[in-house]
Every structure is written in C-alpha cells, then in structure tokens.
C-alpha cells in the first residue's frame, strides 16, 4: 500500500494487508496522535488496509 505521511510530506510503500492499529504500531506512531484516511474517509483502528490502498496518516497534534 502507498502511505502518505506529513510533517514533512513523504510517501512510503508497505507490503501486506494489516489493520490501522498494526500499521501505526509498526511505524511507532501513537494512535492518539494520528488519524488514518482512505479515499477521504476515516478508518478506525481495527479497519483493514490492503495492498492496493492509498492512505494518509494525518498527525492531529498542533503546537500553537
């Protein structure tokens, strides 16, 4: 799957289906600090992500 990340913007490709929570854990990202979006729609923690998905991992923490 193609994973779009922010701050800074970058893309990584990850092979193999997994859940949102598994992906965030693998990337060492705290579930409290991010949302995962597929085709403009939020995906919950147990949502399954497949190889042909393009997803965005969006940080939600702001420092202002």
């Amino acid at each position: 799957m193609l994973v779009r990340l922010r701050q800074p913007k970058r893309e990584v490709t990850i092979d193999g289906a997994r859940t949102v929570n598994q992906l965030l854990d693998e990337l060492d990202m705290n579930r409290e600090s991010f949302l995962v979006i597929r085709n403009g729609t939020l995906v919950p923690g147990d949502g399954r992500l497949d190889d042909d998905d393009t997803i965005e991992i969006r940080p939600v923490v702001s420092g202002g």
């Binding site: 991010f34 949302l35 939020l42 969006r58 940080p59 939600v60 923490v61 702001s62 420092g63 202002g64």
Partner: peptide
C-alpha cells in the same frame, strides 16, 4: 480532543492547514 476535532473537519469536508507551524516545532 484534537483527534476528535481533526475527525470533525475530515467528516465535514473542511480543508484545513494540516502542516505544523514551523515556529512551533520542538516547543
């Protein structure tokens, strides 16, 4: 929470500034 607020914006189709303020990074 800010996770809930980000979710509000995504559900409502609000296109907001996602990038962090460059002056705030590391504060």
């Amino acid at each position: 929470t800010e996770r809930e607020m980000a979710a509000w914006c995504i559900v409502r189709g609000i296109d907001y500034q996602v990038e962090e303020c460059p002056m705030a990074i590391g504060n």
